[in-house]
């Protein structure tokens, strides 16, 4: 009886995943067309066309960095976010400063494991909710732009809004460093030394997530293997 129920659930989940991929692809392509089409549409209204040689020149200057950054984000964050969460996160953006920490926070609150159907559902719910919150706050902000502008841009509040990311990563550090203090200490020390001796790297912190993450995963793997061997010997 239970086996039959499990089988039905597995089939339903597989169907859900297949539809998620299909919808995800269709919506992503539609959003891409909208985003690339919007400048031309606005251009038609403004009676102007994009200067393509200048756009190509700027792409070579700054766009290539983002191409690499996007590849890295895709490879690293898709496993964290699952299928539905990934389609949504790549459509709605703000990955590092919101979507990834938000999904990880939700995952921890309910205690689900990566790669499980629960993770897929929780991650999608979390990213969809946080994206809607951003859309609503931005819409409200745009409507209230004129009355809110003096308050939000007041000099006294600037240190607070300039430090959203440190505030976010401070809280997350407290949460995650506890899970493996040794790995955290080694990785943090390594990164401090790297930035101290090669200060030019301070300009590309988002790219430095690659060596930092690779070191953390490598050290965790060694510790995991050691524990497994000890368990096998015991």
């Amino acid at each position: 009886m239970n086996e039959e129920k499990d089988l039905k659930q597995t089939e339903a989940y597989q169907k859900y995943l297949n539809t998620t991929h299909r919808l995800g692809r269709v919506f992503t392509i539609a959003v891409l067309i909208c985003l690339l089409g919007a400048p031309f549409l606005m251009g038609a209204y403004l009676s102007a066309s994009p200067n393509l040689p200048a756009a190509a020149k700027a792409f070579l200057g700054v766009g290539l960095v983002y191409l690499i950054s996007c590849i890295v984000e895709y490879l690293i964050y898709l496993p964290m976010l699952g299928a539905g969460g990934s389609y949504l996160a790549f459509i709605t953006g703000n990955l590092i400063n919101m979507k990834i920490p938000c999904a990880m926070n939700a995952r921890d609150i309910v205690g689900v494991k990566s790669g499980t159907p629960e993770n897929e559902i929780i991650s999608t719910l979390s990213i969809a909710t946080s994206s809607l919150v951003t859309i609503l706050i931005l819409a409200a902000g745009v409507v209230l732009m004129i009355p809110l502008q003096p308050f939000l841009q007041s000099e006294a509040l600037q240190p607070a809004f300039a430090n959203v990311v440190p505030a976010l990563f401070g809280a997350m550090a407290c949460k995650y460093y506890r899970s493996d203090r040794k790995v955290a200490l080694i990785v943090l020390t390594f990164m401090i030394l790297l930035y101290t001796f090669l200060p030019s790297l301070l300009g590309s912190v988002s790219m430095m997530v690659i060596p930092s993450g690779a070191l953390a995963i490598g050290l965790s793997y060694l510790s995991f293997r050691k524990k497994q061997k000890e368990a096998a010997d015991a």
């Binding site: 440190p166 460093y177 995963i217 965790s220």
Partner: peptide, 18 residues
């Protein structure tokens, strides 16, 4: 996954010290 997050957080916290 947890290690990746430790790496992500460390890259940023270390940048403040750097």
């Amino acid at each position: 996954m947890t290690a990746m997050f430790i790496g992500l957080v460390s890259a940023y916290i270390a940048s403040y010290i750097g």
